[in-house]
Design a protein around this nucleic acid. Structure first.
Lengths: 224, 224
DNA sequence: TTTATATTCTATTAATCATTAGAATGAGCG
DNA sequence: CGCTCATTCTAATGATTAATAGAATATAAA
């Protein structure tokens, strides 16, 4: 075979993965799926799109072998086909953040709150959480917490926060995280907590970022 | 602003980077540029495409801020705008290799030669090269070697190999590398070397893969 | 000035894509 | 069986894309 057409073949294959991550909706699907398996219905609802459209996007992701699907009763559950896919999403987002001015500006609007924890704070976080100096809460829905969460984090879904706020000690600073920098759940949680007079900060990381940084996660109560 | 439209904005920005890497030609451009700065003419020649088409693709990469350009006399030199862009290319290729059957099959045709060095061999390579047990040659064009190369590697461009083959000791095994797994220069070099009765193997890595693995490189003679 | 390099403009062709919608189909549950 | 979830088919719209080509233009070197 010709050397040129062989090369074309190779790059074309990689471009299939590139095409798969060239759509905003599919990227959002990947991020949500990085939190654990979800049904088509849940995904469509999360993205505020039609089920048929979600199905079409998922099909493209499946064609690129970035996700897998399996049937569970009436539902079809989609999952990332590997942790490297989550790592790809994180890397892609980091490059975009580093090189796209518009994205930085949009994110700055989020980070304008100086109470946010920067990625620098990662190292000390574990130790302070272990010592109980801070309370780390995971504000994602319970199934996502059960799939994987940060060490020493307790589950406190955003939807239950207002009701269960008394469970959180008044004298400790609270650090909230969710799915990652693009997820707004932790921001909402901070707002609620501060509204009740608590000291609260956001951790920018989600489990994907945490894992991509080589830090340990907990699965179903077991640190790994 | 609406929470949904704000999210759409964020993912859209990342998708701009995704779109930039959704084309085979642009991916090849990124890989070549990962070896160092190149002029538009060189790039067009390398990819066997029209200068105008190369210019158009480079413009898209520039819009996504993945490359930068600067004028040098009559020429315009393009460069990657950061090492994270090279890392993105490596990650993208790794995901594609892991998840796309066709790509694995195509690559297997290359690796069918059992004399190839697997990525596993990375660790021992440096030590063996340091001790002089093996001779590591960089078969890329000289400017790329000068930009950055593996420690203990000597420059031996493919175009000069046949003429300069006598410089290589007969009693030592030779390990050749080029731009990475998709680059065929090292394969050609192995063929030439074996044709002359030398023991020769290919290292799958290029400088991007080496760097992405956290291993040291040499720049203009200085190990870093 | 001429020449070489690189980009831009214009235009065309052909292809792919996202989105929405209606209707039909399958798969499993009760 | 009826019901729900998910996919498929069809179709239409509008947008974007890659590739190619001719002509014009800007930049800088000789």
């Amino acid at each position: 075979m010709n050397k040129r057409s062989f090369k074309d073949l190779l790059y074309e294959q990689v471009a299939r993965v590139g095409s798969a991550v060239a759509s905003p909706k599919r990227l959002e699907l990947l991020e949500v799926l990085a939190q654990g398996g979800k049904t088509v219905e849940e995904l469509a609802q999360e993205l505020s799109i039609d089920i048929k459209l979600a199905s079409a996007h998922l099909k493209r992701l499946k064609t690129a072998n970035l996700v897998t699907s399996s049937r569970s009763g009436k539902y079809v559950v989609y999952r990332l086909s590997g942790s490297d896919v989550a790592a790809l999403w994180v890397q892609l987002r980091q490059v975009a953040e580093a090189h796209l001015l518009e994205l930085r500006l949009a994110l700055d609007r989020l980070v304008s709150d100086p109470g946010q924890l920067t990625p620098m704070a990662r190292e000390g976080l574990l130790e302070r959480a272990r010592l109980g100096e801070i309370i780390v809460i995971d504000v994602r829905p319970t199934p996502e917490y059960e799939q994987a969460h940060l060490p020493y984090a307790r589950s406190m879904p955003l939807s239950e926060l207002t009701r269960r706020i008394a469970e959180l000690p008044r004298d400790r600073e609270i650090v909230a995280y969710c799915r990652g920098p693009f997820c707004l759940m932790a921001d909402e949680a901070i707002e609620i907590l501060k509204g009740k007079g608590r000291r609260a900060r956001k951790l920018r990381d989600g489990v994907s970022e945490w894992q991509a940084a080589g830090l340990p996660l907990e699965f179903a109560g077991i640190t790994q």
